[in-house]
Structures are given as structure tokens and as C-alpha cells.
């Protein structure tokens, strides 16, 4: 059984070229295509290649899968620091339009990891009909860097730095002057919480609702992900208000990026199983 993967490129709304990979189904079935959105700073293959591996498995299951870099990311045109959640959502809509023109004229499945999950939700807020969404470690949509959020993440990073102090390698770097205090200051300063610009969408609230069709949502979070509790609560409430069935899967012990082979495999298999059930139902 051979996998068919093609490099594709098309022009986005900005006029720049978006580039990525199309996985054609090994044996085509009448299933909605899957469009994958990478994380904030990521590329289309995702952390530890999780998006690529998931795409190959889903293609084996008979689905077309599209993985394309946002503007300013991966191989796509644009400059790194000129793009934000709003521009990523516009690119996400362009990818969906390409899918409807070239793959199947039907609402796709949107699958996003981390900030890519926010892009998926943003597309639905923008009125885009989708079959369903899979959110992997998605933070609260357009969440502002509040004191509480920064503190939660900062505490998680401090624990990591604290443990590094017990490493011989850390002391060697300290003595050699190789520890990058500027980076540590930056990490602890914003704690990796993306500070939004004025033009970006409003944060998800208890009144937020979306105007588009989305039948079902799958939420996957690691139990060691500091952002999980707040995000799960927000998304379950949002999808419930919209009459969209929601399923939540926890990956025991996993962190935000699912950085272990077992966790990665569990995320992919959970998603495949859930989508297979959806395929049967639709």
C-alpha cells in the first residue's frame, strides 16, 4: 500500500503563497477531508511530527488530508513577526476554500493543535460550516495574557528551571557563561502566553456563540497541561450552547505538546477512532 503525498501551493488572501502537503486517500471513501492547522510557531508537520503521522494514518483510513503552513510560518510566504491569530484564521479559510474547490465540495473536518485549535474555532466564528473539529491542546480562543494565566504558566516553567538546577550540565553552562538569562527572563516574563495585538479577535466569553454548522467536537488534552482545565471548561460550554456534541479525551500524564511516543500514538489513535465513528454516522 503506497502513500500518495503531493506538495501543493496556492495564493492566500494576502497575495502571498501558502505551501504544504496534500495526502491523498489510499483508498478513497466518501468522507469529509481533514484540514490540519499547526501551532503558533510551528510548521505543518507539527511537534514531534505528530501532524504528519496523523495525516498518513487518516489517509490510510480513506480521507484526504491537507497540511499547509500559515503565512510567515514553515515554507509559506510572509514575515514571521507580521502575522497573528487573525491572519492565521484568514489563511485557514483560504485552505478550506481550496479544499472545497479541489478535494470535495463539502464541509471539512478541522484539526488544530495548540493555537491551530484556536484557528479552527475562529473559522467557525467567521461563519464557516465544518463537519466537525478536533482540538488538541487548544488554549481558550484568543485568550489575553492575564495575570492569572501568566502565573499558571510561569509556575510550570519555574518548576522546569528548578529541576534543571540539579543537572551537572546546567552548572557547567553557568560556569562557562552559556546560560541565556535573557531567554529565561523572556520565558518567565510572558510565560509563553501570546500577547494579542489590537486587531485580533475578542476572547471567547460565556456569551460567545458561532453562526456556522459544526456537528461534533473532539477535545484532547494532556493531564499535565497547565492550560487544559480552563480551556476544556470554555470549549465544552461553547459547543454545548451551539448544540454540538462534544467528546473529551485525557491523555494521562501528557504535557501540552504530547512529547512522548506513547502519548503521540494515543492522541492519533483516539482521533482516528473518533473520526471513524463520525464517518459511519454521517
Amino acid at each position: 500500500m503506497s502513500l500518495s503525498e503531493r506538495f501543493i501551493e496556492f495564493v492566500g488572501e494576502s497575495g502571498g503563497v501558502l505551501r504544504g502537503i496534500l495526502h491523498e486517500p489510499v483508498e478513497a471513501r466518501d468522507l469529509p477531508p481533514v484540514i490540519m492547522f499547526s501551532g503558533w510557531g510551528g510548521t505543518r508537520y507539527g511537534p514531534n511530527r505528530i501532524l504528519l503521522e496523523a495525516a498518513r494514518d487518516l489517509a490510510t483510513d480513506g480521507r484526504a488530508v491537507l497540511r499547509v503552513d500559515f503565512r510567515g510560518r514553515g515554507d509559506s510566504d510572509g514575515f514571521v513577526d507580521e502575522h497573528d491569530l487573525r491572519s492565521h484564521i484568514i489563511d485557514g479559510r483560504t485552505m478550506v476554500a481550496w479544499s472545497r474547490r479541489n478535494l470535495a465540495d463539502r464541509p471539512p473536518v478541522l484539526l488544530g493543535i495548540c493555537s491551530g485549535g484556536e484557528v479552527a474555532v475562529g473559522c467557525i466564528f467567521d461563519g464557516l460550516d465544518v463537519d466537525s473539529v478536533c482540538l488538541w491542546s487548544a488554549p481558550v480562543f484568543a485568550a489575553q495574557a492575564t495575570t492569572e494565566r501568566v502565573a499558571t504558566k510561569r509556575a510550570s516553567y519555574l518548576r522546569e528551571y528548578g529541576r534543571k538546577l540539579f543537572r551537572g550540565e546546567t552548572w557547567r553552562k553557568l560556569i562557562a557563561g552559556e546560560v541565556r538569562f535573557d531567554i529565561i527572563r523572556r520565558v518567565l516574563g510572558k510565560a509563553g502566553v501570546h500577547v494579542k495585538s489590537e486587531d485580533e479577535p475578542a476572547e471567547l466569553s460565556a456569551q460567545s456563540d458561532f453562526p456556522a454548522r459544526c456537528e461534533a467536537a473532539l477535545l484532547i488534552y494532556g493531564t499535565a497541561d497547565p492550560i487544559a482545565a480552563e480551556a476544556i471548561q470554555a470549549y465544552q460550554a461553547l459547543f454545548s450552547r451551539a448544540g454540538c456534541s462534544t467528546e473529551l479525551r485525557h491523555i494521562e500524564g501528557a504535557n501540552h505538546g504530547f512529547y512522548a511516543l506513547d502519548w503521540k500514538r494515543e492522541v492519533i489513535e483516539s482521533t482516528r477512532g473518533w473520526l471513524a465513528g463520525r464517518g459511519t454516522a454521517s
Binding site: 522546569e160 543537572r167 500524564g253 501528557a254 504535557n255 512522548a260
Partner: peptide
């Protein structure tokens, strides 16, 4: 080992 200590298991360990 560091990440393993912080969570239940992670990286640098034998691949199950």
C-alpha cells in the same frame, strides 16, 4: 529524565 520526573513519563526513555 527531567521531564519524566515532572510528568509520568517522557522522552529519553526506552521506547515502549
Amino acid at each position: 529524565r527531567i521531564r519524566g520526573a515532572m510528568t509520568t513519563a517522557e522522552g529519553g526513555e526506552e521506547a515502549s
